[in-house]
Design a protein around this nucleic acid. Structure first.
Lengths: 339, 339
DNA sequence: CGTTCTGATTGACTCGAGTAGATCCCGCTG
DNA sequence: CAGCGGGATCTACTCGAGTCAATCAGAACG
């Protein structure tokens, strides 16, 4: 049927519906929200009819003002172009959507200043909760959020318990298992390509790698520190190649970095896994389609996102924040020597 | 200095500020917004002081209700995990942020139903504008948005002028140049890996490819249709490999697909570019770090995002919508035979 | 037939900020 | 000194929806 409504922003309000249905505005609300008072079936029908003919849609802004809840969640990521954070953002958005929430995305572009800006902006916009993937790997500054009573969940963090909710993979143990797997292929000199973390704590992946080496009785491994992205991994690869006595295997703290690292190896004509075996962390699609396909530690992104949404919208105001740690799965492909 | 404010959501309102400053609420508004009426310098100072001591932040929701503008833009992408859309989303978010707007992200996960859901949701949330990367490649259903006066910009679309704003790369000419470049390396049998488009129009990349082949007087090329992602490209690669008389070069409609295609070639032991030369479209970081590095058509993402924001917030209500087409740049790397 | 009870409905106030229109105060002019 | 102009300020209404207290209509009962 042809659309006959006006071309200007036709603002159909509760009042219009009430008038057409011949009831008061309160009744319209009761029908729309199914409460808090009952409405006689016949009246309900009249109201529904009016809503349908007018094409009434409640004004979410007005509701938000009245209820003090915007039904919007905010998410801050260091870089949405990182395959892992993209996957995480997708999962969070889906989980939020399933609960009727929309998601504001803030990309901090690896800058703490921008991260702070986004958080402060989210406060102003009265989001109901925030997912924070901080550029810091220690407790970020979320005082303002807490003060306003905005439930905040730290994602990709699980190092130690904090006074706020945190969700992350089991960094230490998963990394240890990854390194041990490399060792199972006969490697003893296993290096670490470690992303730079701006914080005073040790990254769990580094801890796991150390533990594994110690457990193997292997010599102390070498570390290549670089940024958490493809160019960083490439740069680490260059430094790796410059070594006279190269390690035979490498554990890389993210798929992205591993892809850059692989590029450096390819350029030098080294074969993977024959000359250098590689394992990485995250489990993004990127790892599956690199060459050779990367063995990696897969984070249960979907579960983490759902747990995050639950922590924000499903928990009472006074419920104590907690840190939830998720087990990861070793995905074995060609780069470590499997297959 | 220590924070002494209450731990409960301290809702400091305009009223509190007015009381402390000893003025009316209207004056507070005038000071905060710099108008529409003047306030005596001395009074301004008092108000500013009160705002500072109370830590007052205007309630954006209330303002949105009154003004009918949320200062939020919505963006819908088919898949945020696609490197190209991630880059685009990042650029749009940045451009929006620079203008004081926040961005709601909706991931439609390649589903038209979900896309519609997001759009309808954005309408309810009274966003001030929408960026739409539709899963359709023809005019999507944005009637509702238009009816509510929400300015909408179609991104990644430039095939033909529409009654709504559209922004996209110069698909046809850029693709023609890419294919001609492959030809310049001596190739005559150049295949196309074409993403599936749900619409009745021809994809500009396909048109450009055809034009180039015709211009070269080459025989009609072969087409491998597949989904617009890595697995799709891989699948196309499998079909390509099954051919008895394989083309010597391939033009792929996205970096993502090209990465999947490369994987198939690698598995079969074919060398790139010696056995098969490859060029793709988009210009994401993914292309730079694949092996071999992919020659690609780089879209000017930043400029397109900025133009998009301008189209939404900088244009008058009655300004006629227009299609803006952006020139792309050929980035030549190893996969085509350069270097 | 009057009273009481109960469920349906309504009027009116609220959320917090924008702003028009009314008011106030001061200094200047005739 | 009355009258006027004009800037500063305040009062009060508005945006659209949620919901409580009050009201109303009708049924049930004595």
């Amino acid at each position: 049927m042809p659309d006959l409504s006006a071309s200007l922003p036709a603002a159909v309000t509760r009042k219009d519906v009430a008038r057409l249905a011949g009831v008061s505005t309160a009744v319209v609300s009761y029908v729309v929200n199914g409460g808090p008072k009952n409405v006689a079936p016949a009246t309900q029908e009249k109201v529904r009819q009016a809503i349908a003919t007018l094409g009434y849609r409640p004004n979410v802004t007005a509701r938000a003002l009245k209820m003090g809840s915007s039904r919007i969640l905010g998410m801050v990521v260091p870089k949405i172009t990182s395959p892992f954070f993209a996957k995480l953002a997708q999962a969070v958005e889906k989980a939020a959507e399933d609960e009727g929430y929309a998601m504001l995305l803030g990309d901090s572009r690896d800058s703490l200043t921008v991260e702070r800006h986004h958080l402060s902006n989210f406060v102003d916009r009265q989001v109901d909760g925030v997912f924070l993937c901080s550029v810091l790997n220690h407790r970020p500054e979320v005082g303002e959020l807490e003060r306003r009573g905005i439930r905040t969940v730290l994602l990709n963090f699980s190092e130690y318990p904090l006074e706020i909710d945190a969700i992350g993979p089991e960094f230490v143990g998963s990394s240890r298992r990854a390194v041990e797997h490399l060792a199972s292929h006969g490697h003893r000199d296993i290096a670490l390509v470690q992303g730079l973390v701006t914080g005073n704590t040790l990254d769990g992946r580094e801890v796991g790698w150390r533990e594994a080496l110690k457990g193997l009785g292997a010599s102390e491994g070498r570390i290549f520190r670089c940024t958490f992205d493809r160019p960083g991994g490439y740069d680490a690869g260059q430094r790796f190649l410059a070594l006279a006595d190269r390690p035979t295997a490498v554990f890389v703290t993210s798929d992205e970095q591993a892809v850059g690292f692989l590029k450096a190896l390819h350029e030098a004509g080294l074969r993977v896994p024959e000359d250098v075996a590689v394992m990485s962390f995250d489990g993004s699609e990127e790892a599956e389609f690199s060459w050779p396909p990367l063995s990696t530690v897969r984070q249960p992104v979907k579960q983490m996102a759902e747990a995050g949404v639950r922590a924000i919208i499903g928990s009472g105001r006074d419920e104590a924040p907690r840190t939830q740690v998720f087990d990861c799965e070793l995905v074995l492909r060609a780069s470590c020597g499997c297959q």
